[in-house]
Design a protein around this nucleic acid. Structure first.
Lengths: 336, 336
DNA sequence: CTGAAAGCGCTTACAG
DNA sequence: CTGAAAGCGCTTACAG
């Protein structure tokens, strides 16, 4: 901490009680304007800074919300975080950030820590391991401590909390319909094995569309790195003319791979991905993408949480579903 | 906060004093093993969670460090943050995150807030406005409160603190030498006007190299968006064969622009940028880049800060300079 | 080995 | 309008 001035010291110097100092600093109507001014001036002069930790201890809330994210190194999560941060501070809350690195144990440890250091609420997008294991005890336990939680984007089993999701399943379906109308009928779903574990609804949307179009669904998984021999063979035998990539990263990777192998986009194959960051926008050809509205998810998450904290929401959980949006760019053929 | 169990309640239930409870929970050797175990078991059974805020108030440190960043939506800053976060939590510190959005006022407000809510130290990369205005009063004032600060990457005038920087100037120079050896001699320095305001050392490195090679330095600035007519004219008249782009973003943008206009990379023009994220790696052709070691910067920043907090560092400021690294990829011609 | 007391920096009934 | 007292949940000399 520091050698900071306290109310006690102010009170001594000014020959006033600590109570009076406190009230004056907090603009209590009990205190005369004269002393309010006197106290404030003197406090400012002496660089007095209130100790909010002490205040919080007394008052019983901390104006702090915990944010635990699987990672921060994707444009998606960093945008969400920006959305959370801006609204949080403008409402007087501060953010304490924890990264789970997609690990269940680190997520648990983070939450334990947050509990100890006091939070008014929690925003979380569960880790891959959490989602897979469906081990959510550490999350549901927050209920017992009366700490509201809201999840966003990823959704896990049975935790009793407010949730933010998108209609990505629907939009995945729609994206396939669009590709088909533009003349594609050999459309694959491409995913890093790890992503596949999380984004099942994107896959479901794809499969539904393919089935209802009478087309044959085909999932291609890869582990970490391109090049992928299987994919290369498919390209060379012209067995692919469209790709729905599970993430923006994999979309960019597959586009690079296609170009590197001498095929053209979208002439030979159309590509569309998820997450509409500047990454795909500046790629050449620019990437068509399903915009998951990260900033909006962040904003909505923090708004919901604050409303919940302030008792402004009805009992029972709210499940917001945001509309994602298909952004048409150069990587997909167009139809008329 | 919550309906949490406190030591007082434990003490009542167990018929022990609060002091004993506290000592038992903290493994004090004063207390018999028997009661230590009894207390711990009972605490666990009742989901006791220590209130660290209260503890901190008493003990006078808060194990909290403030991190204020201009933005989080570039791979550079998100990597730094990951570097900070991981080491912080493994050392028992938590991170409270503030974004300045490159604005002086928001930076000032963040620091004021951090001061109020108590921090043991601060890591900051100053905003563009801070750097331009050189208004650093809000930063130097922390010294008076005995709160150590460390800056990274960007460096501003005269604040009395530890700093982390890289040898980017040197590596910019070296990059130009490499381009020249590979046969380029019409090399421009490309920057978004806003970036130019911050990254002067990159420009200086460029200019030094050009001058010492007897080449004509040429800075091209643009505002926010491509396409840039000036640049197009230069391309078409073959007056450019190399580009050092001030950031990764501008490197990617200019590469897209070049490709879009039918020129080839690196055959017609070589491009090299700063910040070596996966963005440039997956672009096709992949981007040669100067790796600014963001994770290392983050690690070093937090390590330095913790050492400073713990009084492990000598008086006087430390200025670490990390070695950045030129990564050769497909966007630059090679030499033998 | 256990406990009573004081105190961290604040707020807030309650009295005067 | 001002102040004394109690207390938020802890820790830590000090006494027994």
């Amino acid at each position: 901490m520091s050698g900071k001035v306290t109310m006690k010291e102010l009170s001594k110097s000014l020959n006033l009680s600590v109570s009076t100092i406190s009230k004056a600093l907090n603009n209590s109507p009990e205190i005369s304007e004269a002393t309010v001014n006197k106290v404030k001036e003197f406090a400012a002069l002496n660089n007095y800074i209130p100790n909010m930790a002490a205040r919080n201890l007394k008052v019983g809330q901390c104006k702090t919300i915990g944010v635990v994210l699987p990672t921060i190194s994707t444009p998606f999560f960093s945008s969400v975080l920006e959305g959370i941060e801006s609204l949080a501070v403008s409402n007087g809350y501060r953010i304490i950030l924890c990264l789970s690195n997609e690990l269940l144990e680190k997520e648990k440890a983070s939450i334990q820590k947050l509990l100890e250091t006091q939070i008014d609420g929690l925003i979380i997008s569960p880790s891959r391991e959490t989602k897979k294991s469906n081990d959510v005890g550490h999350l549901s336990k927050l209920k017992a401590f009366k700490i509201p939680v809201v999840t966003f984007d990823r959704r896990v089993g049975d935790i009793d909390c407010d949730t933010i999701t998108t209609d990505e399943e629907l939009k995945a379906e729609l994206a396939i319909f669009n590709l088909e109308r533009a003349g594609c009928n050999k459309i694959i779903f491409l995913a890093d094995t790890l992503d596949l574990a999380i984004y099942d609804s994107r896959k479901i949307g794809y499969e539904n569309a393919m089935l209802s179009l009478g087309l044959h669904p085909m999932i291609i998984e890869y582990q970490n790195r391109f090049p992928n021999k299987h994919l290369k063979r498919l390209l060379e035998s012209k067995s692919i003319d469209g790709i729905l990539a599970c993430t923006e990263q994999s979309a960019i990777e597959v586009m690079s791979f296609i170009l590197k192998n001498g095929f053209s986009i979208p002439h030979d194959v159309s590509v569309i991905g998820f997450n509409n960051s500047s990454l795909g926008k500046t790629f050449w050809p620019s990437l068509s993408s399903i915009d998951l509205k990260p900033k909006e998810q962040g904003n909505l998450a923090i708004e919901t949480l604050m409303d919940r904290i302030n008792g402004l929401l009805p009992v029972g959980n709210i499940n917001y579903q945001l509309h994602s949006e298909i952004i048409q760019r150069q990587s997909t053929r167009t139809f008329f």
